[in-house]
């Protein structure tokens, strides 16, 4: 009888220990979820459909072999997401294509779950859908001091996030928000 009592007790203690060891693991698994946007939100997809009829977001296979010789395939150069105007709403920069036309659009989020558009007009990036020759991507430019020597010595103190235009490995422009408007900083 006494022997059984002790066996059951030891079994309880062992089980109890196991549970203690499993608890932090369970927390770790729950914390492992890194929420990085991998798809455009539906509201933005609808917004593009409405405001840029017949235009579509470019795809990774629109990019040239040369492009992918510079970058890992996990990098998505087709669009980028961050907050450029410190309103704590997601803003997006996207390459849109229609036939062989290409357009860079920056959509800033609004409090009403909609977007405001800014089309970048001073770009001339070659694009031929059949040739898969796209060689310019978009990336997030986090806050930093950006110093440029050419074409002239200049600095940008980027306090909020911006979007960087990448022409192959070269960051040639920064699109950022200042004084209520989208601004461009030329780094080439």
């Amino acid at each position: 009888m006494i022997r059984w009592l002790w066996i059951i007790t030891l079994w309880f203690l062992a089980a109890c220990n196991e549970r203690e060891m499993q608890a932090p693991l369970a927390t770790a698994v729950a914390n492992n979820i890194t929420e990085q946007a991998t798809a455009l939100p539906e509201a933005l997809a609808d917004h593009i459909k409405t405001n840029f009829s017949q235009w579509h977001v470019v795809e990774k296979n629109d990019y040239s072999k040369t492009w992918w010789s510079f970058y890992d395939s996990s990098y998505n150069p087709c669009w980028a997401r961050t907050d450029i105007n410190d309103d704590q709403l997601a803003d997006y920069a996207l390459w849109l294509k229609k036939d062989n036309q290409l357009r860079l659009v920056i959509c800033t989020g609004t409090a009403s779950h909609s977007f405001a558009n800014y089309t970048v007009n001073d770009l001339n990036v070659p694009f031929n859908e059949k040739e898969h020759n796209l060689a310019a991507g978009i990336a997030v430019a986090p806050p930093a001091q950006i110093d440029v020597a050419y074409p002239r010595i200049q600095s940008l103190i980027l306090k909020s996030n911006g979007f960087a235009l990448m022409e192959l490995e070269e960051r040639t422009r920064i699109y950022y928000w200042e004084n209520g408007n989208l601004q461009t900083f030329y780094t080439k």
Binding site: D83, Q88, A90, P142, K159, S160, N161
Partner: peptide, 13 residues
Amino acid sequence: FGSGGTYHTMGFN
């Protein structure tokens, strides 16, 4: 931000 004391990038950075 140090010089100017403005706040930036909450929720993203």
